[in-house]
């Protein structure tokens, strides 16, 4: 599989359409699902995903084997999704940055009865700027440095948004009284 992906990448560098289409076939579903976490309109999500692939093929020479191709591609797809959101006037930075980071910054312990689906569902209830940072952190596994690059915001802002988003998420889940732990 790995070597075949490498062959397809080499082919795509030479602009071989067959290789490009095979890479598309391999990754389109996963990437479509990534985009759908940010872009709620299915038709737009498909377009964003395909634009991301075109961008990836255009820049495929800059791909370095030190990352997996999937994570390289995903980063481009995520950037494409954020661009889409920004075009729709997504506000990312206006919250004032808290200078003091509170000690519980890393407390991600939630009630054990809460399921993954419930979390995903409630993340959607957050306001846009918190939502996006929480998604990038929790769903995609990016750290604050990566998030600050993707969103073009200071790392401090990313931390603040994440902290506020997490507290808000905890509140939402508590108020809905999932489980009986509280």
């Amino acid at each position: 599989m790995k070597s075949s992906i490498e062959t397809l990448i080499a082919g795509s560098i030479k602009k071989d359409e067959k290789s490009q289409m095979q890479l598309y076939d391999n990754y389109c579903n996963a990437m479509y699902n990534v985009v759908c976490r940010y872009v709620k309109n299915d038709e737009d999500a498909k377009d964003v995903m395909q634009e991301g692939f075109l961008k990836a093929f255009l820049n495929i020479e800059s791909y370095k084997a030190e990352f997996s191709f999937g994570s390289w591609l995903k980063r481009i797809i995520i950037n494409q999704s954020i661009d889409y959101l920004k075009k729709r006037k997504l506000e990312l930075v206006n919250a004032e940055v808290e200078e003091l980071q509170i000690i519980d910054a890393e407390d991600w312990n939630f009630n054990a009865r809460i399921t993954k689906d419930q979390i995903i569902e409630n993340v959607e209830q957050l306001s846009d700027k918190y939502k996006i940072v929480v998604k990038l952190y929790l769903f995609e596994g990016y750290d604050h440095e990566e998030i600050s690059q993707i969103l073009d915001i200071p790392i401090k802002t990313s931390r603040t948004h994440l902290r506020r988003g997490r507290i808000k998420l905890q509140d939402l889940l508590k108020n809905k009284r999932y489980g009986t732990g509280y």
Partner: peptide, 15 residues
């Protein structure tokens, strides 16, 4: 009982 919800997302998201 509590859980670190980050662990829930260590595995791939459902596609």
């Amino acid at each position: 009982m509590e859980q670190d919800i980050r662990k829930l997302f260590k595995t791939e998201m459902e596609a």
